[in-house]
Amino acid sequence: MVCFCTLTYAQAASEIMQKIDKNMSSDNRIVESSMTIHGRRNSRTITSISYTVGTEKSFTEYLSPAREKGTKMLKLDDKLWTYYPANDRIVQISGHMLRQSVMGSDLSYEDIMDDRKLSDVYDAETESEEVIDGRAIKVLKLSAKVDDAAYETRRLWVDTEYYLPIKEELYAKSGQLLKRTTLSDFKKIDGRWFPMKLNFKDVLKQGQGTDWEIISIEFNGEIPEYIFTKGALKK
C-alpha cells in the first residue's frame, strides 16, 4: 500500500515535471530579454535577442548598451563562439573559459548552454505541499538520472495551477545548496505559461544575483537555418 502510494506520488511528480518542461522548453523560440547584473558598485542592464532551436542550437545578439551592441554568441552542441564587431573577431570559448561568468553575471556559459529538458536529466518526487502567498505549491525534489548533470539534485517549488516553479534550488552532490533561481510574473503566451522575470543567485558568493527579464517571447516563430553558422556571426 505504502509502495503503491509513493509510486503514484512519483508519477504525479514526473507528470508535473513534464508539464513544466512543456511550459519552459520548446523546439523553437525567439526571446528578447534584458539582464540586470548587480555589481558591488553599480548595476547594468544588457538587452539581447536570442533564437533557439531545440537544445543544440542557439544564437544570441546583444542589442544594448552601446558597448555590447552587435556582440553575438553562437552555440552549436557543446561549442561556443562569440563575435565582436568592434574588431571583427570570432573567439571560441572552450574548456576552462566555459565556467566563467557571462558578462559578470551569476550565470556561467555552461549554465546557459545546458538547456536540456528537466525530464531528460532528472527523476522527480514530490517532497511536500505548501501554500505560499495563498497559492498551492508542490515541492519537487529532482535527482539526476544521467551521469553528466551539472547539479545532482534540484528542488522546485511548483505552482500547481501554472505548472511553473516559483523557486528553484540547485544542489551539489553533497546536498550543499549552490544556486537559487526565483521566477515570477507568469504570463500565458501561445497557450503556455512562462515566467517573465527570473533572478539567478550564486548563493556561495556575496551580492544580489542577476535579474533576467523577458521583454518579448515568441514560440514557433520563423528562424532561418543560416543563422546557426559561423558565417552569420559576422553579418
Partner: peptide, 12 residues
C-alpha cells in the same frame, strides 16, 4: 566546491 569526473558540481 569542485566538479567530479562527469562535471557534476559537488561541495562540502
Amino acid at each position: 566546491r569542485w566538479r567530479d569526473k562527469n562535471g557534476t558540481f559537488d561541495a562540502r
